[in-house]
């Protein structure tokens, strides 16, 4: 095998990505009016509890049957048309929200949403996961990797609009971030 190429380095998204990255339909993993759709919404704060107003949050998840519309899914491709992807910039109060459907369970894993966090101040992406409080998460292998003391930071709470999930970059409730 020839020498692998050097992976291009990550650099900060910077403070001005809002001119180019947010999409009008970014927060809509599913279109408005989709039966069963709910919001996952939350707030992102820094080490002093101040809102982070210049972050970009992205989500990636399976459809309600636990399938991905992707050729590398070894169970065979499906074409449900389910986008699975969401993108939302935080507002001045650090708030973000997505309209989506609950992902199905995956083989051996509880329903979850993968999350990417980009912001001024970070040179690389932070990755976390959202789990659901009304699912059986007891046998999930990724949650099992996390110290039980911090596991709660990955589990959304039930809210009138769907689920609430806050992201704390630092502090007592610092969200668990993963290296994938």
């Amino acid at each position: 095998m020839t020498e692998p190429l050097v992976t291009t380095s990550s650099q900060t998204v910077g403070p001005f990505f809002a001119i180019g990255l947010p999409w009008e339909d970014g927060p809509f993993v599913v279109p408005a009016g989709t039966p069963g759709a709910f919001h996952i919404a939350g707030r992102m704060v820094d080490g002093t509890g101040e809102p982070v107003p210049d972050a970009l949050i992205e989500t990636w998840q399976a459809d309600p049957d636990g399938r991905f519309d992707h050729p590398d899914d070894p169970r065979g491709a499906v074409s449900s048309g389910f986008r699975g992807f969401g993108r939302c910039a935080t507002d001045v109060n650090g708030r973000f929200e997505f309209l989506t459907l609950k992902p199905g369970a995956l083989p051996g894993q509880a329903p979850h949403v993968d999350v990417s966090v980009f912001c001024r101040g970070m040179l690389r992406r932070l990755v976390t996961r959202i789990y659901f409080p009304d699912s059986d998460n007891s046998a999930d292998p990724v949650l099992a990797l996390v110290d039980s003391e911090f596991r709660h930071t990955l589990i959304a709470s039930v809210a009138p609009f769907g689920y609430r999930f806050d992201i704390c970059l630092q502090g007592q409730d610092e969200t668990v971030f993963f290296d994938v």
Binding site: G47, P141, L169, E174, F177, F178
Partner: peptide, 14 residues
């Protein structure tokens, strides 16, 4: 802003 706790190594899944 950078998280204080070490990142948790996550094996890649679907």
């Amino acid at each position: 802003r950078a998280p204080k706790r070490p990142l948790v190594l996550m094996p890649q899944r679907l």
